[in-house]
Design a binder for these strands. Structure first.
Length: 514
DNA sequence: CTAGGGTTAG
């Protein structure tokens, strides 16, 4: 346009600056900024806002601030640009300060703030903000709902998610593609495949995200074969898969134990779809081989992949060594893992569990002593559960809950009931070095057991109990929850760090390998 | 006509 000699107008600048922001092209943005100044366009609210927005989107917050402060007239748009820019850079608290000082806030500003909390993984604050938004009588729209639904997904907050759906239909907020995709993810992350499929089946249009969401949802909820069917359907309707889609497909193969299929997909991903595998894809393959007991092949995969192994992938292999009692390779993998990350508590835990499985109690003892001496701290176990619209958090050994006494005595009753049907506490995975009796207390007080005791106290009979746990469940909790599901006739769904466990009638969907 | 907010893994 410039070369053709046509004079840009403010409208041109606004459009071009928006493009620079969305394309994260700061260099070009700065050039356009210069042109704006040279062209002598007097301060124009929209151009100035576009400039602030461009700098904010290109992560140059200082320039954005400076321009913002120089503006003589500001409106809600440039305020929101700055709030959103700060939030995206991870400075949520600074964003919140600015947000609180805004002279006027609309749905966009509220959504920017809610989404800021979501991206900072502060989901409860995101929901709190949404509540405040309603309190302030600002109408939410599809954008708001996506952020709120995402927060529910991460929290495993199905009740709130369902409330959000009802709210949407009350408010006449329609379910567009983004909302639909977010809902599929939310239901999947809450362990409800049925509802995820309902949304999926009811969608008028679908994109790559839709298919990827349902594939992942099916995969982590132990519906591996159906996830793979979905992938074939996706290809049939000519949707192009990306690297995340393949994470889903490979995860499906892992959880369904389909080793050869997994290898085939890995191959077609590179050959047919020309997607370069990243370390997570290799991680899926290592997991796939490792779970199937092909430890050597898994090790070779790590040694032959084009990138240096990170601690996650070594941890995956170590976990496989534990499951299959291969302490020879396990020890060398643990060594590599600890060389990479000496404070890695996962390495110690897996190594200790592996020794325990091999009945190498002297090694277990020495390891535990080393852990104590080095002061290695295990990440505290933590379970979320929501009940009657409230999200409760339980940490192992937690006594902070107002119903604490009742919960602990309920737990004692549960354990007595379990013992009557043959349960015996399995303390082999207890990490700390204490007397045998203490170890039993330690596992009784694991966060998921506390959460279940609370749930049995405060929920209607026959309702599904849903728990989100930050770590992998221990063997004892897994055993205990299987029995609880039978004894109390409850379906219990636990979302663990990587997958779901659906407990029903004394059995778990993971078929005891996780 | 033009400025701000939304989805998938790890």
């Amino acid at each position: 346009m410039v070369r053709a000699g046509a004079a840009p107008t403010p409208v041109t600048y606004v459009s071009v600056l928006s493009a620079c922001g969305k394309g994260r092209d700061l260099l070009l943005g700065v050039q356009v900024h210069k042109r704006v100044v040279e062209s002598g366009v007097l301060s124009d609210l929209k151009v100035d806002s576009a400039l602030v927005g461009m700098y904010a989107e290109c992560a140059d917050i200082d320039s954005a601030w400076r321009l913002f402060e120089e503006m003589e007239v500001r409106n809600v748009v440039c305020w929101t640009s700055l709030v959103s820019g700060l939030a995206r850079l991870g400075q949520v608290d600074r964003a919140r300060e600015l947000f609180d000082g805004m002279p006027e806030r609309d749905a966009v500003s509220w959504t920017a703030m809610i989404d800021g909390y979501v991206h900072a993984a502060r989901f409860r604050e995101a929901l709190e903000m949404f509540r405040e938004m309603q309190y302030n009588n600002v109408m939410a729209d599809e954008f708001t709902m996506v952020s709120v639904i995402t927060a529910c997904a991460q929290l495993g907050a199905l009740e709130i998610g369902e409330w959000v759906r009802a709210y949407m239909s009350r408010q006449g907020i329609r379910m567009d593609l983004f909302v639909g995709n977010a809902l599929i993810d939310m239901y999947s992350k809450c362990g409800s495949v049925e509802r995820a499929l309902d949304v999926f089946n009811g969608m008028h249009s679908r994109d790559k995200f839709t298919w990827t969401a349902i594939i992942l949802g099916l995969a982590v909820n132990c519906h591996g074969e159906e996830a793979i069917d979905m992938f074939h359907r996706m290809i049939r309707v000519s949707e192009v898969p990306d690297e995340v889609t393949f994470i889903g497909v490979l995860t499906a193969c892992t959880h369904a134990g389909l080793v050869d299929k997994g290898k085939e997909f890995f191959h077609s991903m590179t050959e047919t779809y020309k997607i370069a595998p990243n370390v997570e894809h290799y991680g899926c393959i290592v997991d796939l081989l490792g779970r199937a007991g092909k430890i050597m092949e898994a090790l070779e995969t790590i040694d032959q992949m084009p990138m240096t192994p990170n601690s996650t992938i070594l941890g995956t292999l170590l976990a496989a060594c534990r499951v299959h009692g291969n302490s020879e390779i396990g020890e060398s993998v643990a060594e590599r893992l600890l060389a990479l990350d000496p404070e890695n508590s996962t390495a110690y835990i897996l190594l200790s569990n592996m020794y325990a499985k091999a009945n190498r109690w002297e090694d277990v003892r020495q390891l535990r002593q080393a852990i104590m001496e080095k002061g290695i701290k295990k990440e505290p176990g933590c379970s979320l559960i929501q009940m009657n619209g409230m999200i409760r958090e339980f940490v192992a050994g937690d006594r902070s809950h107002p119903m604490s006494n009742e919960i602990y005595s309920k737990l004692e009753n549960i354990i007595a009931d379990l013992r009557n049907v043959g349960y015996f506490p399995d303390v082999t995975e207890v990490f700390i070095e204490v007397a045998e009796e203490e170890k039993q207390k330690v596992i009784y007080w694991h966060s998921e057991k506390l959460a279940i005791a609370f749930a049995l106290l405060s929920s209607e009979p026959n309702t599904v109990i849903r728990i989100v746990k930050n770590l992998r469940m221990c063997l004892d909790c897994h055993n205990a929850i299987k029995l609880i599901s039978r004894l109390y006739g409850r379906e219990i769904v636990v979302r663990d760090r990587t997958r779901f466990h659906h407990f029903r009638h004394g059995l778990c969907s993971c078929k005891d390998s996780w």
